[in-house]
Design a protein around this nucleic acid. Structure first.
Ligand code: MN
Ligand code: MN
Ligand code: MN
Ligand code: MN
Lengths: 204, 204
DNA sequence: ATATATACTTTGATTGATCAAAATAGTAAA
DNA sequence: TTTACTATTTTGATCAATCAAAGTATATAT
């Protein structure tokens, strides 16, 4: 959803239709309605970009989503691999009033359990790192910022390997041709992962 | 919603249509769909009654609603006059898993902030008192069980008068003809209320 | 530059929710 | 019993969401 239009550029209709799991024709029709209502600007055959108004509600939805995820893990003790889907529903049902009470109760956290920054009430959000594990050279040590993939199984795998936000990761080797990177976290056994997966880990 | 079909008898279509705020024709159509799906039995021109299956999900929804109300007051500190509407939305968005975690977190409360019993996970619920303040004679002292009305302003009034679940209330006088009852709670000033309002307070 | 493939938009149809108005059944009054 | 009233159901129409299939524009390959 929201995650698509982070940057200022246009999102292709194909992405929209795939993300919303509707046919391309339906996506076009939806997007036209949303333009009519002022949420976004639609450039036929190019894509859509959020208006200021649209960006505002998108940020607010991201705030809802991430505060809820934090609550589900911190307060109720759910696993970080299962909270995304739950928050996806709850974010639409929670009122502004309850949301702010929740924020207060949680102590205004800045990051959700996946390491994603939580937008402020005003709608500003901390820019994420542009580095991923994929573009890290052998020998250096980095700190995990966040996990991009919301897939439940991938998150379980990441926790298993202790690939968690805040953790220090040493890059043992990075083999471009073989498309694989080998890592070491704390005193644990080194392990390898493909670039495809490494790209899902944001680091600083 | 659910509150209508507590007893085993039929609910008139007029009630259904009013409660759902749709035209009578729409109510008829909805009810037919729900019968097709097995949620209720529809007796044309008489009304509807829940099937076992329907009663089960209704009880579950009541459990959701009341646990959420409890959470909103106990954990987030919202006022009891504003939680009903909030819970009305959230009850549809919360999953079974999150609900049970919430129940655990709250310590499996038996009553919500209005004094309403919370159905067990299995769907059983404690029978409410059949006494209201309206049918209390002068001189006796009763304990408030619950407030039936969900209206925000009425709830604010009740709290103002300390007419809260668990409180002991002495009936100073009850004047049938004048349709008014006079009450005293703790050491406070006595006050009066009409039978219409007194009927909204369940006591034991 | 031409042809082909891909991404996207349009069109036309279907479905479901809803309403207003007309028809009907059941109830109360005369 | 007949009439009148009220609650409910039916009917016919509208609207929004969605899809499949057909048409069109743009990018890519030859
Ligand atoms: Mn998420
Ligand atoms: Mn997250
Ligand atoms: Mn309630
Ligand atoms: Mn309640």
């Amino acid at each position: 959803m929201v995650t698509l239009e982070e940057n200022g550029s246009k999102v292709a209709m194909g992405k929209v239709s795939a993300e919303l799991a509707v046919t391309p024709g339906t996506a076009t029709s939806m997007v036209k309605n949303m333009e009519r209502d002022g949420w976004l600007k639609y450039y036929p055959r190019q894509g859509v970009s959020l208006t200021r108004k649209g960006k505002k509600v998108a940020m607010n939805m991201l705030r809802r989503h991430r505060l809820l995820e934090t609550f589900l893990v911190e307060t109720l003790g759910l696993d970080w691999s299962e909270i995304h889907i739950e928050a996806e529903e709850l974010e639409h049902a929670i009122s502004e009033k309850v949301l702010e009470k929740l924020d207060e109760f949680l102590g205004s956290p800045r990051y959700d359990p996946h390491g994603h920054p939580i937008p402020s009430k005003g709608g500003t959000i901390q820019r994420p790192s542009s580095q991923t594990l994929q573009n890290c050279d052998a020998g250096i040590t980095v700190r995990v910022e966040s996990i991009l993939d919301q897939d439940s199984d991938f998150l379980k795998f990441a926790r298993e390997k202790e690939l968690l936000p805040g953790k220090a990761v040493s890059v043992i080797k990075s083999e471009k041709l073989a498309d694989v990177i080998t890592l070491k976290i704390d005193g644990r056994e080194p392990f390898s992962m493909g670039f495809r997966s490494a790209e899902k880990i944001l680091v600083v």
